[in-house]
Design a protein around this nucleic acid. Structure first.
Length: 572
RNA sequence: GAUUUCGUAGCUCAGUCGGUAGAGCAUUACACUUUUAAUGUAGGGGUCCUGGGUUCGAGCCCCAGCGGAAUCACCA
């Protein structure tokens, strides 16, 4: 309750003043709304009689007061509309206080109000609500940053500080319409995908987030502990193994939109928790899945942009089927000129050294190929490209290729140089699956921290028989980045992970009183910067005594100051 | 983790050679009956991120730390 800025103090006072006038700044009852800003702006011109008696609610975002009449801007969930307040309409009697005091003096930018009235068009041609009645619904105590847009649509003083925007996303959303738009699009991406899957009769499911074994992907997990069971649990890094158990159980198609958690580095493409959509469909293979993926991306792009061409950074991405298909070996040959098809691990390692790549001895053949791909190819894949047929070593859950020995039936979809989807023909031979897990254990022994652990229960489920199945995972955050032309994942997450804000442990009034400070002096001390007793104790008594007098004058407080002896006692 | 860079009023940002802390918006008061980045006049508002150092004197120079961003490394 200290270190309030001038406007914050004023708003607190206005809140009190309203209460004294018998106006509840936070009324309990609902406010009936029958119109939105968007609805009025779109339909009023064509259908004027429907807007003679409207009721709307939202946040006040600007005032233009000129004497006995005023304009204000109201922002609701759909947009902004202008309100017109006329003194003698609001106050037909001699008592003009509702307009002069409540409206002009006690309302601020940021306050939430309800307004009733009729729609008209001003002389300057703007659709406006002539307010006949208004009601304060919530008083805002903290001033919003003011962003203004001029006639040419040029934005002035836009709030661009990402730290402010991410930490106080609520304020970002109020002030920056483009932020809101990202999240509307994000929701549309998800609902579009859900619609496609539901129409096919697949089931949306939920699987455990707390898992005893963190399987299904290569990543380091968050570890936690269950008290009653007295056992470690991991936040899931993937949900794949659970979804496949459900295919064993007899569902034809299951999908889950869910949060995954990976205890790894954070940067503009990685957040510790992120959203993935995983889909598994029985009796399908990865070729079928590529076609479905094309449909999904095409449909999402069309829903959002009414076209399959989407601008991402400097590139225009064409989400129009069919997408290019390229094997990983073929892709490496295309972008390096080297055909590594017949290379063994030693030869590959040699090649990596020649290219001065950063590799180590824990890397097996598959990992080396992946490294080369990441280094030499990935960034080149701007237009949607399926990279298919991966080495078996890096795909322990994938069915062996029907014709290429040493490879598996897997694809990843790359767009704008980034992976956005990962899919395969799922491995359903329980004996093979056990051997693959055992290979992973060997990699772990070699020092690969991300190798998968044996999951006996998952193998048991496969032993009952899983139909041939194709599965895919799509990163929703990265897809959203792409579809909304954002370069950082933080922009498409409401609340990206941030380091905690530093908050100074501030002393309570009683703490000051305990060492002998009288209550009315406390605000002066706080204003002087002594927010903790510790700091106060370190002060110089002479200087503090003098400063108290100076600050009392500055703050125009009429309080009795302590003697120098009393000040010395505080610090003792 | 490394490098670069930034941190000044509620917001956006200036700040000269090291010499009293600045502007616009917001805010307060007054004026103004259709404005629209409303306007006019007057005022208030600062831990110059924090802590050290150099100096007669630091927003500015040096060192350390904190926080953000970018690039790289790591990581799907």
């Amino acid at each position: 309750m200290q270190n309030l800025s001038e406007p914050e103090i004023q708003r607190r006072k206005k809140r009190e003043d309203l209460m004294k006038l018998g106006i509840d700044p936070y009324p309990a009852e609902l406010y009936k709304v029958n119109a939105t800003a968007k609805d009025i702006l779109q339909n009023y011109e064509r259908n004027k009689i429907d807007y003679k008696d409207i009721s709307i609610a939202g946040r006040l975002m600007g005032f233009r007061i000129m004497g006995n009449a005023s304009f204000a801007e109201l922002q609701d969930a759909t947009g902004r509309i202008q309100l017109y307040f006329k003194r003698d309409d609001l106050c037909p009697t001699e008592d003009k206080s509702l307009y002069n005091d409540v409206f002009k003096k006690l309302l601020d930018i940021g306050d939430i109000i309800g307004a009733k009235g009729y729609v008209f068009t001003t002389q300057t041609g703007e659709t406006t609500i002539h307010v006949t009645e208004f009601k304060l619904l919530s008083k805002a105590l903290k001033p919003l940053p003011i962003v203004k847009t001029d006639e040419e649509g040029k934005v002035h003083d836009a709030v661009t500080d990402v730290e402010f925007r991410y930490r106080q996303r609520y304020a970002d959303l109020v002030v920056n319409p483009q932020t809101k738009d990202i999240f509307v699009k994000r929701a549309k991406i998800i609902s579009t995908m859900r619609r496609i899957f539901d129409e096919k009769g697949w089931l949306e499911v939920e699987t455990p987030i707390l898992q005893p074994i963190h399987g299904g992907a290569a990543a380091r997990p968050f570890k936690t502990h269950h008290n009653t069971l007295d056992m470690p649990l991991y936040m899931r890094i993937a949900n794949e193994l659970y979804l496949k158990r459900l295919i064993v159980g007899g569902f034809d198609g299951v999908y889950e939109f869910g949060k995954m958690f990976r205890n790894e580095g954070m940067d503009r493409t990685h957040n510790p928790e992120f959203t993935s959509m995983e889909l598994y469909v029985a009796y399908k293979d990865y070729h079928w899945m590529m076609e479905l993926t094309e449909t999904v991306f095409e449909t999402v792009a069309m829903t959002l942009h009414d076209t399959t061409e989407v601008k991402v950074g400097e590139n225009t991405i064409h989400f129009r089927a069919p997408f290019t298909r390229l094997s990983i070996v073929g892709a490496i040959e295309k972008y390096t000129g080297v055909n590594i098809e017949s290379y063994d691990e030693t030869q590959l390692r040699q090649l990596c050294r020649e290219w001065k790549m950063n590799i180590d001895d824990s890397m097996g053949l598959g990992k080396l190929i992946d490294e080369i791909f990441g280094e030499k190819v990935e960034a080149n894949l701007i237009q949607p490209t399926f990279i298919i047929d991966y080495p078996v070593e890096m795909s322990p859950l994938t069915k062996k290729h029907r014709s290429k020995a040493g490879f598996v039936e897997r694809f990843e979809l790359f767009v704008n140089g980034k992976e956005v989807a990962n899919a395969y023909s799922e491995l359903n031979d329980p004996i093979d699956q056990r051997e693959r897990f055992e290979e992973q254990l060997k990699l772990a022994a070699r020092g690969d921290e991300e190798a998968m652990a044996m999951d006996e229960d998952f193998i048991r489920s496969l032993e009952y028989g899983m139909p041939p199945t194709s599965g895919i995972g799509i990163g929703i955050d990265r897809l959203t980045m792409m579809m909304t032309n954002n370069a950082s994942i933080q922009e498409v997450l409401f609340f990206p992970q941030m380091k905690p804000e530093q908050k100074t442990q501030v002393a309570e009034i009683q703490d000051y009183v305990k060492i002998g400070v009288s209550e009315e002096i406390v605000p002066i001390l706080q204003k002087l910067g002594f927010l903790t007793i510790e700091e106060l104790k370190k002060a110089n008594a002479n200087k503090l005594f003098n400063d108290l007098g100076g600050m009392r004058k500055k703050m125009k407080l009429d309080v009795k100051l302590p003697s120098k002896e009393e000040v010395e006692k505080w610090l003792a």
